[in-house]
Amino acid sequence: MPATRTLPSPEAVDLIELTRELAGKELAPRVAEAEAEEQFPREVFRTLGRAGLLSLPYPEEYGGGGQPYEIYLQVLEEIAAVWSSVAVGVSVHALSCYALAAFGTEEQKKEWLPDLLGGELLGAYCLSEAHAGSDPGAMRTRAVRDGDGYVLNGAKAWITHGGHADFYTIMARTSDDRSHGVSCFLVPADTPGLIADPPERKMGLTGSATATVRLENVRVPARRRIGEEGQGLAIAFAGLDRGRLGIAAVGVGLAQGALDHAVRYARERETFGRPIIDHQGLAFVLADMAAAVQSARATTLAAARLGDQGLPFGSEAAIAKLVATDNAMKVTTDAVQVLGGYGYTRDFPVERYMREAKVMQIFEGTNQIQRLIISRALKNHDRGHLRVRKQEH
């Protein structure tokens, strides 16, 4: 029961149909085995890249898809409904390209962005550290100026695609100033001294490699610094607003997949002579699941539309991430309940959905951090922005 969508153009309709086709033919047959065997599906990302799905929200002049976030997030949803590990990877890749696209010089963008967006390369985003997950200002990884470059030393934790990425967007401290002492670097994966530890052994998203990335005297030319020295945290926070929307969309898609499976099961499974969906107690559970998915989708797309129109959307992105991922946890838990004992076995995918949903409440800023962002925005709120949205024809 795929989501019903209102899309602004025939191109967007074609894009969603292409994504659904690829998800059904290329992702669905592989997901169960890859997750069970903890295999990183590198070739799947190449397939999506060749279809143009890794670069949707970036300008066409640099090789991107030129799509608004409103459309890109719905593509993420469609992927996540089938394979959350891959959808998270697409979101992380988009985030890893953001610093260069938004803060790079024209020369830097022309030189590197087409390759990053071309579909063959995969990116990773290195902000968190073991002691500084929710407090990036406390990072210890340092970049010391040395002649015409920098030497980086330190370790970045919980890095999606760690050990598999082709390039890393790395935040490192260039001074002791807590707020303005971090800078951003674009580092190729084959740079000497950049080393990935073995992947973490995780509860869910086992098809997504997550590893600590160590920097041991990694020499980076100064021209690979993105933005000004000390601008790194501003770059990181601007990117995280978009990254949170990506994870919100993944949460919506994951919940949609769990809902679809639960409804199919409830239509087929019979007790007391009739399908269990006909029993009001269970039907109401499914109705609440559907309401949670729909409300999360609406909240996420509303935030995306603000960003697409150039309006501030940081608080709205935090709300979307909070609502969508909390709802995904609830919906996937209820999906297990709908299937009863079968839902607790690995013979059915809903137990995997439930395990995958948990981390959605943790990465891209824990949901406690999202509440902090939202509450601070309320404290400083002055007035809303009014803008007429152009009608699409």
Rank of each mutant, 00 (worst) to 15 (best):
V220N: 03
T105D: 13
T19M: 11
Q294P: 00
R387S: 13
V359W: 13
A255N: 04
G149V: 03
A172N: 05
Y168N: 00
V323Q: 12
N153T: 11
R305I: 07
E26H: 13
A196M: 09
M171R: 09
D347G: 15
L186G: 04
K330T: 13
G118H: 06
A12G: 14
P192D: 08
V338H: 02
M360I: 06
F284A: 14
Q39G: 11
T345F: 02
L386R: 10
G239F: 04
A189T: 15
G341V: 07
V323S: 11
S295N: 12
D148T: 07
D288T: 13
R387Q: 14
T345K: 01
R244C: 04
A172V: 04
R383V: 09
K202H: 09
A234Y: 03
D260L: 11
D148K: 09
S85R: 05
L54A: 01
E364N: 14
G239W: 04
Y353F: 15
G149Q: 06
T206L: 12
Q39H: 13
A324S: 09
H131V: 10
S208Y: 06
D166E: 03
A287C: 09
W83K: 08
A34W: 12
L215Y: 04
P2R: 09
G310R: 02
G307N: 11
E200V: 12
L127E: 12
W112C: 03
H261C: 11
E200D: 12
V220K: 01
R223W: 14
A222V: 09
K358T: 05
R224L: 13
R20Y: 00
G227L: 05
R267H: 15
C184F: 00
G49H: 01
A296V: 02
P198A: 05
V151W: 07
A236H: 07
G154R: 06
K379V: 14
E111Y: 07
K202E: 04
A101D: 12
I369F: 08
R371L: 13
H93S: 05
R274I: 07
L18K: 15
V144L: 15
H393T: 13
G66S: 02
T325E: 02
D135Y: 12
H164G: 01
L27M: 14
R142D: 05
A255T: 02
G163L: 02
G204M: 12
G181F: 15
G204Q: 10
T4A: 11
L18G: 03
G181E: 02
V293M: 15
T169V: 08
G133C: 08
A298W: 12
L194Q: 11
L22T: 03
R20S: 03
S183T: 01
R387F: 08
T332Q: 01
N217E: 13
L194R: 08
